[in-house]
Design a protein around this nucleic acid. Structure first.
Length: 825
RNA sequence: GCGGGCGUGGCGGAAUUGGCAGACGCGCUAGACUUAGGAUCUAGUGUCCCUGACGUGAAGGUUCAAGUCCUUUCGCCCGCACCA
């Protein structure tokens, strides 16, 4: 018979809810701790990845509570987004209805897992009381010049019928639906994250509690590079083209120049030239290529001559101006100088179009010939063919050249970032409306703060066409201009859902405030998040945006921290048969099924035990069975002992036998290990294995000691400690057993046990005796023996004496409590 | 190509500071209890030519001692990738 998990779990979930066990307030003399898991998109059902994420977070939250912290552990819903609209089109359900019923179901599932959330602080980004403040955030950014509108070539997903941020385009495909992303020339809203590029980069150094991997990814994404901008005059035209280069030392080797086909100056440059028609065709062709095929490393470089020439300011050489596929408009200046001898891309381009290859840097002791080179020389060397800079090492020349460019006013030192401004407008319905009104008289007018929220209308038709469905809502579109009162039209684009999730961790601090997004006091008390837990897929997107928002709000004085997350744990994926669980592979295990069959405690235990949190986890039905068996084992041993410990006096007892001491040792070793594994390393798998060893020791004790010799207070202590150690992992069974052994009050409100170093000090230890590094014998020795005495004891056994007989003992190394190594010759 | 990570039994994984490799769990084997066992308990379980030898992807090295440190190398996973 197994224990009745279903009854127990329901009972305690009800108890926790009715007693508001996990509700927290700021005013508390305990130190605060903010434990946060990434809130989910309400797709309708929890998956194993969620279970893993929230189980990990729950261990942390419950453990910290038991260790005397005032723990904030909230949950909410990232509830705007495309799937709601797709469902509306497919099933004819309104996104609002669809989303809220999903939330209801997932909330029930979360509660069935017994996660210790303060549900009073629940937020949903699609609720007007939340998006009011998302819109408020937009207005603050707008007010401070950090939100702006511009026309540009933007990523366009034809399937989602919306624009996408750079971060949402993965390998040229839509991050969400995987269809090919194209380009469209549209007017769009942007957040000026580039203003914060340097700080976002610099402050990565502050993130000591973040995984190296995530920090490297962010730093690569920001992509700082140092170089110079250099001005080239167009021959017989009054136009100057500026290039960005990281290699100003190769300036004398420029043999052509390339401009991006979309560059605004191109039309003027080619106008009336014999090459105009060819150029226009090329531009047209490039527009229809998506970015991945256009810019992939494998795509052959392709270009056309514009007919124009530019003049190299350092040597007055006239070089041809091309347009080419490999030059991107939105990086640097969109114009690149071609130095075939020292850049591989330029080299390939030059060979294809028969452009000269001029060597200006020679490797030491070698002579390169531009005509016969087979690849570009990109390493360091000595300057040649570079006028006054000849003979210098190229590094030194680089510095000098930049200085000289600045003096002559033909160039400047320049730092560039790969990071682009964040495109936040979406032509979709189910998002926070951008609070802006267009007025014929006044232009772009932000909606006044007191008029927020701009409510999403309900009279909307979902067409799936490339226009915001809001455009069709008469009640929404027309609005009076807040400035002049004339009728204007509202912005019909909504905000990227990543805007909503960039500040939700702040809202949790003060979730029902309707006067402001949060009070400074609340945020100052709880922030920063002490431990953030979520999937590594958000390493760049969400985590970078959240950092950006925090910095902006810090600058505006709304928060006192400039980094939101002190420690970050990126959990691994849940796999089945070596692959990520997915519908298409048919390897999905539903959490609900597992909870129904074995209970939430078993589900949680397995997921925590199978692998350390940051590694991928292979699902195993048999492993789940094993965890269920273990909990039954725990149940039975506590049941068995209940009678024996009933009238146990508190504290001391008679002299301990060997078995008593052994049990005491294992118990304290378990307390030590579990404590350290949770607090220092988050290695829940080894923490759980230590508890298993403790339980095994209890069974050993039962096997070896007759009932009459039981020490009631020792066993009582053991039962209490066992239950306390289990509490963060398997909260329901722990709570039930806690009361079963006659305790009162929630086990989760108890103090975390501490270990007794005395119990861990054994008087005798077994050590290995090695000869030349190989174990040849084992001996029991008193624990306090000196190294010398250990060596002596080791050489006294019959077996060792025999083995060293007639040999010369060169050296004896003794490691206290571990081993003795005798080196013989 | 650049950056990050990982290779340990039949499987998931331990080994935290260089100190007995394989904790714990799964699986497997045997025994006990039993009408029965897919329940439970107990014992065993890296490999082999088994008083010993070998063994942490491979090859070298440092050391009394190496999964752990160093050098070389192979394989896998993840991220970025024409960024001038």
């Amino acid at each position: 018979m197994s224990y009745n998990f279903s009854e127990i779990e329901q009972k305690w979930q009800k108890y926790w809810e009715e007693n508001n066990c996990f509700e927290v307030q700021e005013s508390d003399d305990r130190p605060k701790y903010y434990a946060l898991e990434m809130f989910p998109y309400p797709s309708g059902n929890l998956h194993m990845g969620h279970v893993r994420n929230y189980s990990i977070g729950d261990v942390v939250a419950r453990y910290k509570t038991m260790n005397g912290y005032n723990v904030l552990h909230p949950m909410g819903w990232d509830s705007f987004g495309l799937p709601a609209e797709n469902a509306a089109m497919k099933h004819g359900v309104h996104p609002n209805e669809w989303t809220w019923s999903n939330i209801e179901n997932m909330k029930r599932q979360l509660k069935e897992l017994g996660i210790s959330y303060d549900w009073n602080r629940e937020v949903a980004t699609c609720h007007p009381s939340y998006y009011k403040w998302t819109q408020w955030m937009f207005l603050q950014l707008y007010k401070h010049g950090l939100a702006y509108k511009k026309k540009s070539f933007v990523n366009w997903c034809p399937s989602c019928a919306t624009v996408l941020a750079n971060e949402q385009v993965v390998n040229g495909k839509c991050e969400r639906c995987k269809s090919d992303v194209g380009k469209k020339d549209l007017e769009q809203w942007f957040f000026k994250i580039t203003d914060y590029a340097q700080r976002l980069l610099d402050d990565i150094d502050k993130l000591a509690g973040w995984p190296e991997k995530v920090k490297v990814m962010q730093s690569n994404w920001i992509g700082r590079s140092e170089g110079a901008e250099v001005k080239f005059k167009v021959d017989s035209m009054d136009i100057t083209l500026t290039v960005y280069t990281t290699r100003p030392d190769t300036l004398f080797g420029v043999s052509y120049m390339v401009i991006a086909p979309e560059h605004p100056l191109v039309r003027e440059l080619i106008k009336g030239m014999p090459q105009e028609k060819e150029c226009l065709e090329f531009i047209h062709k490039m527009q229809f290529l998506n970015e991945i095929t256009r810019t992939s490393n494998e795509t052959e470089k392709e270009g056309v001559f514009t007919g124009r020439y530019v003049i190299n300011p350092v040597n007055n050489k006239k070089v041809p101006l091309y347009m080419a596929n490999y030059v991107l408009l939105d990086y640097g200046t969109g114009i690149v100088m071609g130095v075939p001898a020292h850049d591989q891309r330029d080299f390939e381009f030059a060979r294809k179009y028969n452009l000269p290859v001029e060597v200006v840097i020679q490797p030491e002791g070698q002579k390169l010939d531009g005509a016969t080179m087979t690849e570009a020389f990109t390493a360091e060397g000595i300057m040649v063919n570079s006028g006054e800079y000849d003979g210098l090492r190229n590094r030194e020349a680089m510095v000098k050249i930049i200085e000289d460019l600045e003096k002559k006013n033909i160039g400047t030192r320049k730092v560039n970032y790969r990071l682009r401004d964040w495109l936040i407008s979406r032509q979709r319905y189910w998002g926070a409306p951008i609070p802006v009104i267009y007025c014929d008289e006044c232009g772009i007018v932000p909606v006044p703060e007191e008029d927020l929220p701009v409510i999403l209308p309900t009279d909307v038709v979902f067409t799936g066409k490339g226009e915001s469905p809001l455009k069709g809502s008469e009640t929404f579109v027309y609005a009076k201009c807040p400035k002049c009162g004339k009728m204007g039209t509202r912005e019909t684009d909504t905000m990227d859902t990543f805007v909503c999730s960039s500040w939700y961790f702040l809202r949790y601090c003060d979730p029902s405030n309707d006067k402001e997004p949060f009070t400074k006091e609340a945020v100052d008390y709880w922030m920063p998040v002490d431990q953030y837990i979520g999937g590594v897929e958000h390493a760049i997107l969400h985590l970078l945006y959240a950092r950006f928002f925090t910095k902006v709000l810090y600058d505006l004085g709304y928060v006192s921290v400039d980094e939101p997350f002190t420690n970050l744990l990126t959990q691994g994926m849940v796999l089945k048969d070596g692959a990520k669980m997915s519908k298409s592979l048919g390897n999905v295990v539903s959490p609900e099924e597992i909870v129904n069959k074995y209970g939430a405690d078993t589900a949680r235990l397995f997921i925590l035990f199978a692998s350390p949190p940051e590694k991928d986890l292979e699902w195993s039905d048999q492993g789940v069975e094993g965890c269920f068996r273990f909990l039954n084992r725990v149940w039975r041993i506590v049941e068995d002992m209940t009678e024996a410990i009933k009238d146990a006096p508190e504290g001391g007892t008679d002299a301990y036998t060997r078995e008593d001491k052994e049990l005491l040792y294992v118990m304290h070793a378990a307390i030590k290990k579990v404590t350290e594994d949770i607090s220092e390393r988050f290695n829940f798998n080894t923490a759980i294995s230590a508890i298993m060893e403790f339980v095994n020791a209890l069974y050993q004790y039962k096997e070896k000691v007759i009932k009459e010799d039981y020490k009631p207070s020792l066993l009582k202590d053991a039962m209490e400690k066992l239950i306390l150690l289990l509490a963060p992992f398997v909260p329901h069974i722990a709570e039930e057993l806690w009361h079963k052994i006659g305790k009162e009050g929630s086990v989760h409100k108890q103090k975390w046990p501490s270990y007794d170093a005395k119990a861990l000090a054994r008087d005798e230890v077994e050590i290995a005796v090695q000869i030349n590094g190989k174990v040849r014998d084992r001996i029991m020795i008193p624990a306090g023996l000196s190294q010398q005495e250990m060596g002596k004891a080791a050489m006294e056994t019959a077996r060792i004496r025999e083995l060293i007989n007639g040999k010369e003992v060169v050296k004896v190394i003794a490691v206290p409590k571990k081993l003795v190594n005798i080196v013989i010759r």
